[in-house]
């Protein structure tokens, strides 16, 4: 039997974290949570998860993006898949990082990008896809 996969949720909305935790735990994922980017990064340093669910706007407008770019630029953590979730309207997120003035980057730093609310079944399917082949 494969080892339990750890998923780290980084979101400042506690209800969202708890709900997502219940959904993920129902499929036997080990869930850890942080409520801001800084705490999230220290948790990653302590114990790198298999996947990260990341919110965009927390204490700053682009905290999620900042953390995502930081991880993508580090040799150690660049392979951790990131699913970004945001409550920003589609037209803002569709335009990509250009809309987020402080971020300079060519590529999306995340594997998947969802506008909240996400259908639980869809989220689970995407997570499963991203974790396929991961030891």
């Amino acid at each position: 039997m494969a080892a339990t996969k750890t998923i780290l949720i980084i979101d400042d909305d506690k209800d969202m974290v708890n709900t997502t935790r219940i959904i993920l735990e129902s499929r036997n994922y080990a869930v850890e949570a942080a409520y801001n980017g800084k705490d999230g990064y220290s948790m990653i340093e302590k114990h790198p998860p298999d996947l990260i669910l990341l919110d965009v706007m927390m204490s700053t407008n682009t905290e999620g993006f900042d953390l995502a770019y930081k991880l993508k630029n580090s040799n150690q953590y660049r392979d951790i898949p990131i699913i970004m979730l945001t409550s920003f309207p589609r037209e803002i997120t569709l335009q990509g990082p250009e809309k987020f003035q402080h971020i300079l980057g060519e590529d999306w730093p995340v594997s998947e990008f969802f506008e909240k609310p996400v259908d639980p079944d869809e989220l689970l399917a995407v997570i499963q896809d991203l974790l396929v082949g991961k030891p």
Partner: peptide
């Protein structure tokens, strides 16, 4: 954009 985000956040949580 932020107003949209703030209004949608609790709603999204309820929805989920």
């Amino acid at each position: 954009a932020k107003a949209a985000h703030q209004l949608r956040s609790p709603m999204n949580a309820i929805h989920t």
